[in-house]
Amino acid sequence: MSYEIKLDVFEGPLDLLLYLIRKNEIDIYNIPIALITEQYLSYLEIMRSLNLDLAGEYLVLASTLIHIKSKLLLPPAEGEGEEEEGEDPRAELVQQLLEYQAFKEAALSLNERPLLDRDVFTRGAASEEEQTTAGEADDALIEVDIFELVTAFRRIIAGFDRKEDLEIDMEKMSLTDTINEIMERLSEEGQITFSDLLGDRTDRRRIIYTFLAILELMKLRMVRAYQSGPFGAIRLFPAVEG
């Protein structure tokens, strides 16, 4: 069985669950728990295989899903059938999902409003932010988090033919070599974009090594990653000069 691998920018476990529900075109009030649990876990597996440090919240929801699944498998307790049907074990989760979905939509509609300094502007007095960031050359850049890196990674591998993935490249690679290579290019070029580093690599292993190397370098605080806006190019800078 294969799943389309699509690691969008999930804002958390509920976001991932909502995404799966939308993707499968499922009625949120009648979630097929077995199917969703399976897919949810396979996504966690993908994230784990990329060596992403999964936030504990993802595992909490995974255990909730499995708990609900097991409850659904049990026959209803005796004497309960006569009266109302026992409460649906999914009810609490559904309510949480609906609540989250409402706020997610509210966030989107907030973002569609004419925003100050994006869509509308006031008379040219420097705003507080401009004053505090004045002089910083890179103030258009925002620091990116792990999800954006994963999205960038997915974009790179998305175009690949599956056949190509199956070809085994025996070239020996090590994380250390990749790290050294990145640091070398960084010290030569000063800055480098994520796609520059990955663009000409055609096999998955090299990409994964590069990706892991960047994550490692970020963890070691040897490089910093910035992005000029959502879906913009991710730029890497050496964290310390020289």
Binding site: V9, N111, R118
Partner: peptide
Amino acid sequence: RSALLSPAAL
């Protein structure tokens, strides 16, 4: 000069 908000922040 505009500082965009991330989805998480929104």
